[in-house]
Design a binder for these strands. Sequence first.
DNA 1: CCTGAAATGAGATCAAC
DNA 2: GTTGATCTCATTTCAGG
Lengths: 153, 153
Amino acid sequence: MRLDPLDERIVACLLDDGRASFAEIGAKVGLSAPAVKRRVDKLRQNGAITGFTAKVDPRALGWTTEAYVELYCQGKTSPTTIKAGVAKFPEVVTAYTVTGDADAIVHLLAADMKHFESVLERIGAEPYVIRTKSVLVLSQLLDRPGYASPAES
Amino acid sequence: MRLDPLDERIVACLLDDGRASFAEIGAKVGLSAPAVKRRVDKLRQNGAITGFTAKVDPRALGWTTEAYVELYCQGKTSPTTIKAGVAKFPEVVTAYTVTGDADAIVHLLAADMKHFESVLERIGAEPYVIRTKSVLVLSQLLDRPGYASPAES
DNA sequence: CCTGAAATGAGATCAAC
DNA sequence: GTTGATCTCATTTCAGG
């Protein structure tokens, strides 16, 4: 799949404001509203755009503690097992399998430190988890909406 | 700030579909469209909802390489310095200051391994950076839109 | 304070070109 | 790709709880 430069600009607009009107986007990229809609429909259809969501402030919703937890798992633990295991926790925001010493990295939010401790305990109690290593987030320096525009190296 | 249970359900709806109409949300939570709009306006005003964005598939946009990079910085490097430094790179998606050995964690996307290498090199060349430690993402197991509903520990 | 109902204007959507 | 008709939805105003 290839993205037209126009498509990229449309995606950039939608990353910046997911509720922007097609006419508004069209004004920025030089297209009419129906043309923009057709392109967005196509982008959604082929999976470039997977959906739309609100950006929320976790603190405002009562989540004051944020952490990255490295998971060290047993010899032959499949990604599927890890996925199923961490998906049980609503506190988990994202999870990845990674290279390096750890097998997976889990990004999670907790109401407070006590809550975080309990989540960490329960994740550590998962049968496939040998040990965990936590890094607490002090402050968020940057959070780009979606993913930035293509960059040339 | 306190969130009404109704507000939480509205936020959940918007996390699920950031372009949902007020009438549609109202049908799910049992309110009229204007009532939903008023609550959403207030949620945006007080910062609980910071905006709306599209969810995109980085691979579809040409980003095939994803990594977390730990930054080890010089003795008294301020978060502001780190923020300004990493913000220059469009490849950086998120950045946090953290507890532990490293000073910051940077989440970034690159077109390919060659591109990643060049970004890593340039970040490592920042004057305040002593060394970096990279973890490459193998596969994404989970990516929850925004942040999940409140959980009790 | 909150709600819902009605009116109005803006945007989404479809047809035709 | 566009323009133009139509219909939905967003938004405002108003009245009631």
